[in-house]
Design a protein around this nucleic acid. Structure first.
Lengths: 218, 218
DNA sequence: CCGTTTATATACATCGAAGTGTACAAATCG
DNA sequence: CGATTTGTACACTTCGATGTATATAAACGG
């Protein structure tokens, strides 16, 4: 309605020749930016302006590719999930599983962190990661049951082994990703250590469980 | 369930004879309720109405005890931190550290989860937990340096050992807290496994780093 | 060269949660 | 009993983030 401030014309040689992207490429770039932004501060604390700034454009553009913030977040998580499952496969705990996981994490560290450090805590989106963790726990349970007798410590190890694997990979990412050739082997060794800790012989003897039920721990 | 103390029903009109609490007790009860509420859905996604509902009173009452939502959250985290450090002490990795941690986690599971699963991800509050994690990593580093030579894998283990300890304790909580007498020993065994994985001899040989760049890394 | 797509810029609408104020009711204590 | 504390109920403002609309400019493709 009014002569709103029009963008100043190039007027110089150094025109910022913005390369226009096709819809699909732009969408991928937006997903990349959103992954970084969300991985930094989490879903609720990250505004769409942050995502837009990370992508280098304005908030209005986001709505040309995604219906809502939740829709965008879901797309981000979906892509990370697909990448991960494609890289690792849904198969068992064979020798190639951990190397594949390490490779996938190194290929998309932000997506990896986003899935396992943030999305698990978001009530509206954890269903996406829950499939992964449930499958992992199931696989771990089946694999561990070959050496650990049934009982609470088998359950404990089945929960802990996937979590430890994730934590070990993230710690490896945080440490600067030293030689990837060793990484998978080290992670595997750590997992083996947890398995050993869940064996019946791991604990020498059961200390008497404090017959007085009163909690003296103040 | 609401922890309103002995709500003696007068068996008369619809008057709920609620026992009024003193300021200190009410504050403690509010901290308990806030711990539960925040541990369930995280700080940003938890409204003050949720906390009030969890405590069994109205939102206005919260402002008689805390200046703001952030102030309340900080009080919650502070109390959890104090409890934890009091229970474990700030000393080294002696034999009593892990049992103390397990006992503290069992005494306040929600506070434990809140600290290490949520607060670490909140940019405005992670400083509280960062002191804990930094101290843990430092302690772990000093302890591990006695057996692991300096290098990236010592750093890796120093990051991973505290994280694994936390994860192992949380997995133990999630598994239903089976016999606490064994728990600390199992966790210690798992930690030992990670230490072993960081030793130089853990990985049998270093696979050649693939002089031909692209084998199948798609 | 012209139309379509891609993008900018900005203003506006909307909506939920935080934070505030006030009036009133009930319980405890002197 | 009467004063103070503790709590309810509700209305209200403030504020930031989401979501929408419109006008305009630049790049690409035929």
């Amino acid at each position: 309605m009014t002569g709103l401030g029009q963008a100043e014309p190039p007027a110089t040689e150094s025109v910022v020749r913005v390369r226009r992207l096709r819809r699909t490429e732009r969408r991928e770039q937006l997903l990349d930016a959103a992954t970084r932004a969300f991985a930094r501060t989490g879903y609720p604390a990250t505004g769409l302006d942050d995502v837009a700034a990370e992508a280098g454009l304005t908030r209005a553009m986001l709505y040309r590719h995604f219906d809502s913030k939740a829709d965008m977040y879901r797309a981000v998580l979906d892509r990370a999930c697909v990448r991960l499952t494609e890289a690792t496969g849904a198969d068992d705990f064979d020798d190639g599983a951990i190397p594949a996981l390490v490779r996938a994490a190194a290929a998309d560290p932000d997506g990896f962190r986003l899935l396992f450090r943030h999305a698990v805590r978001e009530p509206d989106f954890r269903d996406l990661v829950d499939e992964l963790t449930a499958a992992s726990r199931d696989i771990a349970h089946r694999s561990l049951a070959r050496t650990i007798p049934p009982g609470p410590w088998l359950d404990w190890a089945s929960r802990l082994v996937p979590a430890l694997t994730i934590e070990a990979v993230i710690a490896w990412l945080d440490a600067g990703q030293p030689d990837p050739g060793q990484a998978a082997e080290r992670v595997g060794q750590a997992v083996h250590g947890v398995m050993a800790a869940a064996l019946p012989g791991a604990v020498p003897h059961v200390p008497p469980p404090a017959t007085a039920p009163g909690t003296d721990d103040g």
